[in-house]
Design a protein around this nucleic acid. Structure first.
Lengths: 152, 152
DNA sequence: TTAAATTCCTATTGACATAATAGGAATTAT
DNA sequence: ATAATTCCTATTATGTCAATAGGAATTTAA
C-alpha cells in the first residue's frame, strides 16, 4: 500500500489541528474521538510528527499538540514522510534492491514515477486541502492526458 | 508497496517479449534466465497476463509466449493490473474501507492521487518504454510543478 | 500536596500480503 | 517414447502493518 493508515491518520490529525489553529494545544484524546482513531495508535503517529518538527507539544494536564507552522508552510509530502517513513512506490531504485540486468528499460520508469508522486505531494500544503478546491489538480490531469496522448 | 515484484517482473517479461517480437513463441525458461527471475514464479505471472489477454501461448515442446498485440497497443497500466491485481494506492476510496468521518478533507485527495497514477500508467505503452526517451514525461513534470506552484 | 490528565516510551500480538517454492499433470514437437 | 514446455494446486517463510498494552514522566489545578 502506497499510503498506509499511519499516513492517512497523520494527515487527518494535521488537518484537525489546522482547522483549530489559534485555539492553543489540542489533546490527542479529542482528536482521536473526533477522527474515530485509536488513541494509542495516534500517540505513536503524533510522536513521529513531533520528531520531524511538524508539530509541537506540551505534556501534563491541559497538554496537547499544535502545528509547528502555518498550514500553507506544511506540505503533505513531509507529513507522509514523517509518519510512514517514506513512500513505498517500488523496491527498484536505479537498479538497487532489484535483480535488474544491464540495460533494463524500467529503471527510469520508476524514477519518473517517484518524481510524479513526490512532486504531487510536495507541492500540496495543508492550506490547499483546507481550501479543498484544488482546481489546479483537475487542470493537471487534463494537461497530463494531453501530453501523454501527444495531442499537444 | 505500490509496485510489487509481480508487477516489475511482469513488465520486464512483456518488454522482453516486445524486444523479440517476430521471433515466434519465446519460452519462459529463456526469459527467466535472461531476466534473472525464478522460472516457477514467472510461470504464475505469465499465466495472469494470459488470462487478461495480454499474451498468447502454446504448450508442449517449442512452446512459449508472445505478445497478443503490437507494443504500442499494450499499456503499462493493464499489465500492472493483470499481474498485481490493481494498484494499492490507499484503502480509502471515497470513504469506503476507511473510518473517515463526514466532511473528511482527504477523500478527494486520494481520488486525485489515483487519477494521477492511473493516468500515468494507462497513457504509457510498451512502445514508449522501448523508445525509452519519454521526453513527454519530463514535460509533464515541468507542467506539474508550474501548476502546483500556481506559476501558470 | 494530591489527584487527574496528558504526553512519552518500550514491548508484544494478530492478521495479512508478498515472494517464492514444490510437485506434478497436461500438451506437443521431434 | 522422450523431452520440453505450459498449466494447475498447494504450501511455506518472511516481513510489514495495525493495533494493543502497560506504565513512566510531566504538568495543571483542586
Amino acid at each position: 500500500m502506497l499510503i498506509s493508515t499511519k499516513g492517512r491518520y497523520a494527515l487527518r490529525f494535521m488537518l484537525d489541528l489546522a482547522e483549530r489553529r489559534g485555539e492553543g494545544y489540542i489533546s490527542l484524546k479529542t482528536v482521536a474521538t473526533r477522527q474515530n482513531i485509536s488513541l494509542k495508535y495516534l500517540e505513536a503517529i503524533a510522536n513521529s510528527l513531533q520528531n520531524k518538527g511538524l508539530v509541537v507539544s506540551t505534556r501534563g494536564k491541559t497538554g496537547g499538540y499544535m502545528l509547528s507552522d502555518e498550514p500553507d508552510k506544511l506540505n503533505v509530502g513531509s507529513i507522509l514522510l514523517a509518519s510512514q517513513g517514506g513512500l513505498n512506490t517500488v523496491d527498484c531504485n536505479n537498479g538497487t534492491g532489484c535483480n535488474c540486468t544491464e540495460g533494463c528499460l524500467t529503471k527510469s520508469l520508476w524514477a519518473d514515477l517517484n518524481q510524479l508522486i513526490n512532486g504531487f505531494f510536495n507541492g500540496l500544503s495543508l492550506q490547499h486541502l483546507l481550501d479543498s478546491e484544488r482546481s489546479e489538480m483537475k487542470e493537471l490531469n487534463l494537461l497530463q492526458h494531453k501530453v501523454l496522448k501527444k495531442e499537444t
